[in-house]
Nucleic acid binder design. Sequence first.
DNA 1: CAACCTTTTTGGACATACACCAAACATTAG
DNA 2: CTAATGTTTGGTGTATGTCCAAAAAGGTTG
Lengths: 140, 140
Amino acid sequence: MQEITGLELSPKKVQYLKFLLKKGDLVKTTDISTELNVDPSTSTKTINDLAESGYVDHVPYRGVRLTEKGREFAEFFVNRHNILSLMLSHYGLSSEGACAEVSRFEAFVSKEAIDTICGSMGHPTVSVCGKIKHSSCNLH
Amino acid sequence: MQEITGLELSPKKVQYLKFLLKKGDLVKTTDISTELNVDPSTSTKTINDLAESGYVDHVPYRGVRLTEKGREFAEFFVNRHNILSLMLSHYGLSSEGACAEVSRFEAFVSKEAIDTICGSMGHPTVSVCGKIKHSSCNLH
DNA sequence: CAACCTTTTTGGACATACACCAAACATTAG
DNA sequence: CTAATGTTTGGTGTATGTCCAAAAAGGTTG
């Protein structure tokens, strides 16, 4: 289990990891390119970056799978998304609006801030976008 | 007065405009490079970009000044920063923590979201980082 | 008012992130 | 085992943002 600052990955790479976690198991690079609306060659290249950094394992022509490290990060990314969406929804944004807004900036919010916000909310278990787990929250 | 989506400028350029508004009047490109910790040649280049897009006027070797358009955007950027900082401070972040956190992601939050949040807060006039004006808030 | 010193800009190079296209390559279906 | 399909490689391009070295402009002072 490694330190997560929350600022390790670019917005696009965060999207990749969240999608990989949602799909689970072995995912085709083509599924990713379809989901994220990019050329298949783009997703292959990005996946190779993520593999080099140890977030995924890539078996060429076969598919991609999160590593243990990748899974931990992906779970944090999903929680971060959900906590931020819940927060925005408290200020009058619709579920969809909050979700869309958060998707643009979530990659730049630190884990430290998320833990603080999460604690301040009383560690909610449900957001407007999905459920929230607290295994990685440092403020128990 | 033109439409502002809030997503027009990159994080760095938002910083430039906020600094220019704070300093007011004619600002040396060297002051900017000192403030933002970049090489003077970097600030000159970025200022030229902003001048091409109509946010500033640049008189070479003399200084930089916000245009009317630039001033409107800069005021929105400052308000956005302050509203988001106030929001985060409601969830347990310190003034400095909220301010630092917001500085990283503010460029990706839309004016539409800010107006909604601002309205939901009852149009506060004071934040943890400075005062808030409401001239540009669409939900008066 | 000319030479010098300082400030600012220009030009060139580089890094990161992201994207696409065309061609090569592997897998799978028939 | 060949053809169609799916995937990767290599090449290129755009947008940001960065620095360094050299040129240019501005300011200062004998």
